[in-house]
Simulated assay, not measured.
Amino acid sequence: MAPKGKKALATSSTTQAHEQHPDWPPFKLILPQYSLSIQEIVPNQIVTIPNFWPSSLCKTYISFLSSLPLVTTPGKPKKGDAVRVNDRFQIQDALFAKRLWEETGLKDVVMGDLQSDEGLQLDGETRRRLWGGEVVGLSPNIRIYRYSKGQFFDQHYDDSNNVTVALGQTEIPARTTWTLLLYLTSQLTGCVGGETVFYPDPPTKKAAPPEPIVVELEVGMALLHRHGAECMLHEGREVLAGEKWVIRSDLCVRR
């Protein structure tokens, strides 16, 4: 599960240095928190939150994000980095991260009483083990990805990073433990391809590799997957038609 040898990493570095924060659209169209639920794809590894954002809000954000100064990533990455070809915008925006965490129902569903497929409630200690510690919010490192036809993100591992999360007037030292991807497009919006595919490790060196786990795009779905030392090898498949839009942050725990 953990990064091995010289497998490519997805780093959070960027050539952009945006200081002026965007005037992000409000979340007034967010669904009630009680309608959200976490769906387990791979135990302790991959979960989704279907219908995290309504399609109307996704459409509003696509229109807004199209106005940002996106920069195309180079086709030849730095040594050790994964090959990715997309258009991206990256900014340190603690206020937007706080809003995304608190005003969308994400905090409630992540911190609330989860249920497994067997209907068993997960207590606080179980949740701490799941998320890797005491969750304090989202990383202020906000990334916007647009994948057009022919663009992709090759197989890689997501690294963990030390960050600072603002809680009220206090800044909390934290580290990232799970990647958060919010999909704004899907086949319903004309995006063909672009699935996120995970590659589990074989149980033994001589065993055949398990079947890949393919997470299809769904408008407004949030995908959370464990990263850092326990990250599963994964990729963003090539977009064959249309555009794939993603908002990226990371779940953070106290360090």
Rank of each mutant, 00 (worst) to 15 (best):
W101L: 00
W101V: 04
E103M: 04
T104S: 14
G105N: 04
G105V: 06
L106M: 10
K107H: 11
D108W: 05
V109R: 10
V110S: 07
G112Q: 12
D113K: 14
Q115H: 14
S116V: 07
D117S: 13
E118P: 04
L120S: 14
Q121M: 04
L122C: 05
D123V: 06
D123A: 05
G124T: 12
G124C: 13
R127Q: 06
R127I: 08
R127V: 00
R128G: 03
R129L: 14
R129C: 12
W131N: 07
G133L: 06
G137E: 03
S139A: 00
P140D: 09
P140Q: 04
P140G: 03
I142N: 01
R143T: 14
I144A: 07
R146V: 07
R146H: 14
Y147N: 01
S148T: 09
S148G: 05
S148H: 08
G150V: 00
G150I: 01
G150H: 02
Q151V: 03
Q151N: 10
F152K: 10
F153V: 06
F153L: 08
F153I: 01
D154E: 13
D154W: 07
D154A: 15
Q155W: 02
H156A: 14
H156R: 09
H156I: 00
Y157K: 05
S160E: 04
S160L: 03
S160I: 02
N162R: 13
V163P: 00
V163C: 04
T164F: 13
T164M: 11
T164S: 12
V165W: 05
V165A: 09
A166N: 06
L167R: 15
L167Q: 12
G168M: 06
G168I: 04
G168K: 06
Q169K: 15
Q169E: 14
E171H: 15
E171D: 12
E171Y: 15
I172H: 03
I172L: 05
P173I: 09
P173L: 08
T176K: 00
W178N: 07
W178K: 10
L182E: 05
L184N: 00
T185C: 03
Q187Y: 08
Q187F: 05
L188H: 15
L188K: 15
V192F: 14
G193P: 00
G194L: 01
G194M: 01
G194Q: 03
E195T: 13
E195D: 12
E195P: 05
T196I: 01
V197K: 08
V197P: 06
P200S: 08
P200N: 07
P202C: 07
P202V: 06
P202E: 08
P203K: 06
T204Q: 12
T204F: 13
K205P: 05
K205G: 10
A207V: 03
A207W: 12
A208P: 02
A208F: 10
P209G: 07
E211P: 00
E211T: 10
P212M: 02
P212S: 07
I213K: 09
I213R: 06
I213G: 13
V214A: 02
V215M: 06
E218C: 09
